[in-house]
């Protein structure tokens, strides 16, 4: 199974021959090393001249893009914050304005109401005074009439009883009775 016999056999695919270790067949090391060096040089140049700079550029570009995008996003976020603040301010203003208008309207209505109430009160007072006066007049009229009628009636009764009615006394008597 020495390596030289194996090398002489070329390839040991034949089942009858000893398999050996192809790795220790030094006759093909030169060939493998040569092609390996060719391969490595090709790979090195492909990688270092084309692939790696390109990927590095792409990665750098992406990093730049991401940084820019993050900055833009920050800016937009700030803008959105500002817009929100403005919106809130507008809302507060509008609310205050509404409050003010409501207050004004309320005050106006109150004034009108007060005026109307005052006027109504005055009218009512005037009417009441008038009515009272009328009632007083009527009452005075009625008392006078009663006095006259009482005096007349008393005079007549006295006359009917056969006496002579003194107008003055009758009157005084009626007065006294009226007071009682």
């Amino acid at each position: 199974m020495a390596t030289d016999t194996h090398a002489a056999a070329g390839h040991a695919a034949d089942a009858a021959s000893a398999p050996g270790m192809p790795q220790l067949d030094f006759s093909n090391w030169g060939n493998q090393i040569f092609w390996l060096l060719v391969t490595l040089v090709v790979i090195y140049f492909v990688l270092s001249r084309i692939a790696l700079p390109r990927i590095a550029a792409v990665l750098a570009e992406r990093q730049g893009t991401i940084t820019n995008d993050i900055a833009a996003a920050e800016e937009l976020k700030a803008k959105a914050g500002e817009a929100e603040a403005a919106y809130n301010q507008a809302l507060v203003d509008a609310r205050a304005e509404a409050q003010r208008i409501v207050g004004e309207a309320k005050a106006e209505i109150q004034t009108d109401l007060d005026a109307a109430i005052a006027k109504a009160d005055a009218e009512i007072a005037a009417k009441a005074a008038e009515s009272e006066k009328a009632i007083a007049e009527i009452r005075a009229g009625a008392v006078d009439s009663i006095r006259d009628v009482a005096a007349d009636t008393a005079k007549e009764i006295v006359a009917a009883l056969g006496g002579k009615a003194d107008a003055k006394a009758v009157k005084a008597a009626v007065e006294a009775r009226m007071k009682g």
Partner: peptide, 25 residues
Amino acid sequence: HPMDQFTVKPLFGGDHIGMFTITNA
């Protein structure tokens, strides 16, 4: 034949493996 898969063979005929022979390697 667990080691047969590692055999270096010339691809285009012939038994001799020289320095620049195109092999399966």
